[in-house]
């Protein structure tokens, strides 16, 4: 039984990895390439040596309670 279970788990890992690889290259990869062509940045990494500040506006304060039931 133990052998069967770990065999099942191993198969699960292989299937998961295969699926994730497909998602990675088809989903993440294509999005990334399209984004790079379109000049869209997903992480803001550039330095602005001559700029005065890196602070960006945030308005994190009280909202309606129902807003907090959302996970985003």
């Amino acid at each position: 039984m133990v052998g069967q279970k770990s065999f099942g788990e191993n198969i699960g890992v292989v299937v998961n990895s295969a699926l994730l690889s497909v998602v990675y290259f088809a989903g993440v990869g294509v999005t990334s390439i399209v984004a790079k062509i379109g000049g869209k940045k997903f992480l803001e990494k550039d330095l602005d040596e001559s700029g005065k500040s890196y602070w960006s506006d945030l308005s994190l304060g009280k909202k309606q309670i129902r807003e907090y039931y959302r996970q985003f």
Binding site: E44, Y54, W55, S56, D57, L58, S59, L60, G61, K62
Partner: peptide
Amino acid sequence: EINLIKEIK
């Protein structure tokens, strides 16, 4: 109440 007004990401 709390207000966070600036951030670094």
